[in-house]
């Protein structure tokens, strides 16, 4: 989970700051490796029982699982909405301060930038409910045969 949410943005930033020098090429490779690792973590989470719990029909889940899922969905919605709002505030400030030469804030400009943001948003939206379920699940390896 931490790999998913930390490696992807770090990998994207490394690729963003990479220039045309040899160091830049190394940064680009390192950044790409982190993004690939994040997608691997995403694939593991997508196949987990937690991710299934967020998508199963209600008839398959019992009352505790439904309550947990509803709570996780609410928390994920709140966090995602918060991130979207902060991003909009940032873009709005960037627009308002665009005449100020002393404060040159970064904005996505190329297709690659928007691609990175889009796939980051997709991963976040798809996995946040499962992430909150995982944070709440204290006993994942419980022996059910007891």
């Amino acid at each position: 989970m931490i790999a998913l949410y930390a490696l992807y943005p770090i990998g994207c930033v490394l690729q963003l700051i990479a220039d045309e020098t040899a160091t830049g090429a190394a940064l680009r490779i390192a950044g790409l490796s982190l993004v690939v690792a994040a997608f691997a973590a995403f694939a593991v989470l997508a196949g987990s029982s937690l991710q299934r719990q967020t998508q199963e029909p209600e008839t398959v889940l019992d009352e505790r699982e439904l309550a947990d899922r509803n709570r996780a969905a609410y928390q994920a919605h709140s966090v995602f909405a918060g991130i979207v709002l902060l991003s909009l505030i940032y873009l709005m400030l960037r627009q308002d301060l665009s005449d100020n030469r002393n404060l040159d804030l970064w904005t996505p400009a190329t297709g690659d930038h928007w691609n990175a943001i889009f796939w980051g948003a997709v991963m976040l939206a798809m996995t946040l409910p499962a992430a909150f379920l995982a944070f709440r699940k204290f006993h994942p390896d419980e022996d059910i045969e007891q």
């Binding site: 019992d62 505790r64 699982e65 059910i144 045969e145």
Partner: peptide, 22 residues
Amino acid sequence: MSRKELAEAVGVNPQTIGYLER
């Protein structure tokens, strides 16, 4: 009676019985 048997008897996931016990 095991957790699994109780869970089947009342129609919940066995893990839910564990949550109730704790």
